[in-house]
Design a protein around this nucleic acid. Sequence first.
DNA 1: TACAGTAGGTTCCTAGAGGAAAGTGACCTC
DNA 2: GAGGTCACTTTCCTCTAGGAACCTACTGTA
Lengths: 122, 122
Amino acid sequence: MAERTIASQSLDPCPINPVVDLVFSRWTTPILWVLRHHGRQRFNQIERRLPTISPKVLTQRLRQLERDGLVARTYYAEIPPRVEYEMTELALSLVPVFETLVDWSEAHLHKVEQARRAYDSA
Amino acid sequence: MAERTIASQSLDPCPINPVVDLVFSRWTTPILWVLRHHGRQRFNQIERRLPTISPKVLTQRLRQLERDGLVARTYYAEIPPRVEYEMTELALSLVPVFETLVDWSEAHLHKVEQARRAYDSA
DNA sequence: TACAGTAGGTTCCTAGAGGAAAGTGACCTC
DNA sequence: GAGGTCACTTTCCTCTAGGAACCTACTGTA
């Protein structure tokens, strides 16, 4: 490992922080998961599939996902109004990321449980 | 996370939530990133590389990572005391996950910026 | 004598996320 | 005319993660 100056030490950002803020902030992965596995969904459909989310927070998250280009919102000016949400192509490009995480969970998550039990008993 | 019980699994089956809570909670990826790219590090070395973290929070995060089996802590009973932190094998198994995220960022993150500009100008 | 380095611990406090519950408006049903 | 549907919006409130500042014991150094 090469010598580094003090100045360069502080300039050492974690390059995955932006994508972590984007994809792994609260409720975003459950929402994307619902849209991925159930296709286009109306607001109340998503709400029913995520029983512990409040409508205020669901609205906030969907707006954020729409602004980030991960969710497409389609409004139908009917009475009563109808709104449908679906994943964009950009969000679909995240599917391999999610699959990597699922694979890691299946292979290694039990070791985390083991480590916690060992730590707590010591 | 406490509500993620058997009952909610049928309605809320996002299987990556546990690993998200584990790996992508605040400060954990920057800490792991520092350990990955600079090897074993002492407490103050990590602190200097993450200029905006407070010592209290750094202690909390390191304890949590140690409990989860992602970081190994070695204490040397010298005067003044010396403590070194390093990634465990379990944490090293996450490296492909991080690389997947880096790849996605390089390929797609600029589209998020575009989407935000388009949304904000509309 | 005074101070710095070491790895944190402790106390106090605040900003902000997020939950609960009620409201909105236009229409349809009973 | 009372209530339901839909997609939110608004208001109020609580909880907690996290920041700031200070403290610990011990020694080497100026």
